[in-house]
């Protein structure tokens, strides 16, 4: 039984949120459910939770809500600065590089002409990613100049301003899998391989999950990556290149449905442990 008051920000109850709610109930914790579709903030809003778990599927809602919650004195997981960094691939890549964490090379450009020039400088293939986005959505592997011109033209007309922030990442030839590691605070609790014949290895796109043993080297790079973006409840995505392991993304609203049975680790319970620690009752 805990006397910590814990809020849960959501806009849909996925399997992850359901597992978290059930795990909390077993420990005598009743979440205060905060539906981001209904919540209204004002500049003097005060909240009655000690800690808020941000589980909103919408990045933009999460970002604004976290800022408002934190400025009202609520400890949030993850924090607004962490969400700001992890929710933006440019910010993530820059934070990783500045911290000395191995990460693929990236170029950023703001017009389709300069983006084409950047791609030509990098050489083919390159990966074009939206600066904000998840689940492998709208990612493109650009194999030649014709493809680059076509995709850049399409992105230029997509409508949202952030599609005109062109993020080009070095393509890493990986062994039909990448690694996702779960880092909660200072602990790397488990990791999975995400395997697919396709170059996109998100489980949301059909990749299969299997347990990935945690080596001291893997743990260290994961901890370094988590520290680079500010620590919290994070999923670090890594690629095994020919020469080294590199971090290519860090996720801050972690999905874990495929990783509990796979790893044997009770991920929702570990999340609650961390939340209680942050909330002051660990």
């Amino acid at each position: 039984m805990s006397d910590i008051r814990m809020g849960l920000l959501f806009s849909r109850i996925r399997m992850e949120e359901k597992l978290l709610i059930e795990a909390a109930k077993k420990r005598g914790i009743e979440f205060v459910m905060v539906d981001s579709r209904e919540v209204i903030f004002d500049l003097d809003s005060k909240f009655e939770y000690d800690v808020l778990l941000e589980r909103d599927v919408s990045h933009s809602r999460a970002l604004y809500a976290l800022n408002l919650f934190e400025n009202s004195g609520v400890k949030a997981i993850n924090s607004y600065p962490v969400a700001l960094t992890c929710g933006d691939k440019v910010a993530t890549s820059k934070a990783l590089r500045d911290a000395g964490v191995p990460t693929p090379d990236v170029k950023v450009a703001f017009t389709k002409e300069s983006a084409l020039e950047a791609i030509e400088q990098m050489g083919y293939p390159v990966v074009l990613k939206p600066v904000t986005g998840s689940w492998g959505r709208l990612m493109a592997k650009i194999n030649d100049r014709d493809a680059a011109e076509a995709v850049l033209e399409h992105k230029d007309h997509l409508g949202s301003y952030y599609h005109k922030i062109f993020y080009m990442q070095e393509f890493i030839n990986k062994p039909e899998r990448d690694i996702r590691a779960f880092v909660f605070g200072d602990d790397v609790i488990c990791a999975i391989y995400r395997s697919s014949k396709h170059w996109i290895t998100n489980t949301a796109r059909g990749a299969t999950a299997s347990n990935c043993p945690l080596t001291p080297e893997l743990k260290q790079i994961c901890l370094d990556a988590a520290a680079a973006v500010g620590k919290g409840i994070l999923a670090v995505d890594l690629i095994e290149s020919e020469n080294e392991v590199m971090v290519h993304e860090v996720n801050y609203t972690v999905e874990f449905r495929n990783s509990i049975d796979t790893t044997g680790v009770n991920i929702p319970d570990k999340m609650l442990d961390y939340a209680l620690e942050v909330g002051g009752n660990g």
């Binding site: 599927v57 919408s58 933009s60 986005g133 801050y252």
Partner: peptide, 8 residues
């Protein structure tokens, strides 16, 4: 329906 900023 899924929106562009949805994800993890």
């Amino acid at each position: 329906e899924e929106e562009e900023d949805w994800g993890e």
